[in-house]
């Protein structure tokens, strides 16, 4: 695992819980206990009400493809082995939009509105990245 050469997320103190969650194969979303909003990406203070009373909820892991783009070239060398890369923005029922890669599918099978679900990949001993794959019919 330690030969992973691609960039790892630059974790912030207030996003540590998110990455602790993915390591346990849970997708956590930051939640403001004061104004009851779900927040992505994690921040120190609630961007809506500036409360510091922040917690976490576990997402269902389901989502819908809002848009996607299949990258065929123009990436840094360390990503070349992954081409084609299916970039996507996905909408979670918890009301947030995330950037991800769609995996376990072919580029030609992807479409806007497609139902997807989270899948976790332990890329190093410390870091687990969440990806999404089509929900099997």
């Amino acid at each position: 695992m330690s030969d992973y050469k691609k960039p790892l997320p630059e974790i912030q103190p207030y996003s540590q819980a998110f990455w602790d969650g993915t390591k346990q194969h849970k997708l956590l979303i930051q939640h403001c206990n004061s104004c009851d909003s779900n927040i992505f990406y994690p921040r120190r203070d609630c961007p809506k009400c500036w409360s510091q009373d922040m917690g976490w909820i576990e997402a269902s892991g389901k989502a819908q493809v809002y848009t996607y783009s299949v990258t065929l070239e123009g990436v840094e060398q360390k990503f070349v082995e992954d081409l084609p890369i299916i970039l996507a923005w996905i909408d979670l029922p918890e009301g947030i939009r995330m950037h991800t890669n769609l995996v376990e599918c072919e580029p030609e099978d992807v479409h806007i509105g497609m139902e997807v679900e989270v899948v976790f990949r332990d890329v190093t001993d410390e870091i687990t990245l969440p990806y999404f794959r089509p929900v099997k019919a």
Partner: peptide, 18 residues
Amino acid sequence: DKQFEYPYGVTFNGSMGL
């Protein structure tokens, strides 16, 4: 975003492609 975009191989072209 270096935490939630960059690890996924997004480029500027990819971002605008989306």
